[in-house]
């Protein structure tokens, strides 16, 4: 497989220009920041509250924005143009994900800053946030490829966002309904678990299982994304 950073950068630059002129989608990136600012002023200083903001960033910026960007490319047939160009699958998906990745990381950082979250071990949290961002962006890409239009994408992304961000609320019923234990393996729950362990002094070795579970989710979502993308290459 070929890889050219120049082509990835070309798609990224195009996306940046296009995104900055697309108010309907670009305005969404401010929602997690507003929520984080409100939480910060309310003095909510729990891991759950901090990661509510960060998971909201993943869902809104990573998944929702990415899903809309991909669905729009599909709806307007510009994705077809990219597919017929010399850009490889890796270059197209990489280029198409780069803007969402940069935005997700920047917004997640500012959310943490505004809600006054200061992790005990920045390296572990940063690693987990980077892997989680990649997962949520992959999820957005997958949903965008499945959706037939931007309108449809904003509908199908909602239940997925609900599951992957609000899953933590379900954990209170796990004792009553053991089947809900599966929720504990969601990447967002793993991230909260990891952050909680980090606050009690855990190192990389202690959170490896959390990181591995998030990584497995990431790999699975990207395998599905590539399969759907290859199908979309042929009408």
């Amino acid at each position: 497989m070929t890889f050219s950073w120049k082509r990835v950068n070309a798609i990224f630059q195009k996306d940046f220009k296009d995104f900055s002129r697309n108010l309907a989608v670009s305005i969404v990136v401010f929602l997690p920041l507003i929520l984080a600012a409100v939480y910060g002023r309310m003095g909510l200083d729990t891991i759950q509250a901090h990661f509510m903001n960060i998971n909201m960033t993943f869902a809104m910026v990573g998944t929702y924005v990415q899903c809309c960007l991909i669905a729009e490319e599909k709806e307007k047939n510009t994705l077809r143009g990219l597919m017929l160009s010399p850009a490889s699958t890796l270059e197209i998906l990489g280029g198409k994900s780069l803007l969402s990745f940069v935005l997700t990381i920047v917004i997640a950082f500012f959310c943490a800053y505004l809600s006054e979250y200061r992790p005990a071990n920045i390296a572990i949290i940063a690693t987990a946030i980077v892997i989680s961002s990649v997962f949520f962006i992959g999820l957005g890409t997958l949903l965008g490829l499945i959706a037939k239009s931007v309108m449809e994408s904003s509908v199908i992304v909602l239940p997925v966002i609900a599951v992957f961000t609000m899953g933590s609320f379900v954990t209170v019923w796990i004792e009553k309904y053991p089947v809900l234990q599966i929720v504990e393996y969601l990447p967002n729950i793993q991230l909260i678990d990891l952050a909680t362990k980090v606050e009690s002094g855990a190192g990389f070795g202690d959170v490896i299982s959390n990181l591995a579970i998030i990584l497995i989710w990431t790999v699975v979502v990207y395998i599905l994304t590539v399969v759907v993308y290859k199908k979309r290459m042929v009408d």
Partner: peptide
């Protein structure tokens, strides 16, 4: 064939210049 509506003609073609090197 699709083009990026929010970009100019030149911006659209420049993207493809970069993709085709």
């Amino acid at each position: 064939s699709g083009l990026y509506g929010r970009l100019s003609i030149i911006e659209n073609l420049q993207l493809y210049c970069k993709l085709y090197d």
